[in-house]
Design a protein around this nucleic acid. Structure first.
Lengths: 122, 122
DNA sequence: CGGAATCCGGAGAGATACTG
DNA sequence: CAGTATCTCTCCGGATTCCG
């Protein structure tokens, strides 16, 4: 289904809007970064928790499931007892990380300016 | 309320998180793009409305006020009757647009893959 | 250990009506 | 024309508890 030939931001189905809806969720970009830092290695659920201070098991699980569903990450289970579950980014996930890195660079460079502007009005 | 230790993505106050919280809101990225397309010219409130189908006056107003507050856009009022209010991006806003363009490119290139992956599980 | 199920509160988003 | 005021509602995110 491609009623919109180009990426038209004003299309309700525009890809950018939908992408931002995903990476804009609270923990997604952080999870992608943690996974990217470990790439091409894997990261276990518990280690992800440790590396993402403040995340609840539910939110981490939800975030990871979204990444899996979107083909951005993969899951591998060691059938031991207790089980060990590992996550890693797919190629698609790694390419997203590259785009996110640009956003991070911008944020680290310019957020202070934004804060200054916003602060002056507070 | 909190001190701002810097440079760590995993800090609750990390700049990337806070940036995504802003550009992730429903209309912000769209408004930035519309303003960027007109740059260095200005765009009036009514024209922004027309170019952002589905936006309510309240949401557009809120979005623009956030951009103003963050120093990403500027407002100019012609003291006529009726008034004419013009908006344009600041230099900071234009640099953000450049970063957003990267996200857009990624989205237009890869969202189909995400949709395919997500669709297979639906 | 790695989740799933459930409940809850608050912010975001929208519709509508009104005003300078 | 360019907003503001108010109300409502959804749903995200968090805490907690339970299961394989």
């Amino acid at each position: 289904m491609t009623p919109s030939p180009r990426g038209d931001l004003f299309d309700p189905d525009c890809p950018t809007r939908r992408l931002l809806d995903r990476i804009g969720t609270k923990w997604t970009s952080m999870a992608v970064k943690v996974l990217a830092e470990a790439a091409p290695g894997e990261v276990r659920f518990a280690e992800l928790r440790r590396r993402m201070p403040g995340v609840s098991p539910k939110m981490l699980s939800t975030t990871l499931q979204n990444l899996l569903r979107d083909g951005l990450a993969e899951r591998r289970v060691e059938p031991t007892v207790p089980p060990r579950v590992h996550y890693r980014l797919t190629g698609l996930g790694l390419s997203l990380e590259a785009a996110l890195a640009v956003v991070r660079d911008w944020a680290e460079t310019h957020m202070a300016e934004i804060d200054r502007a916003a602060g002056e009005r507070s």
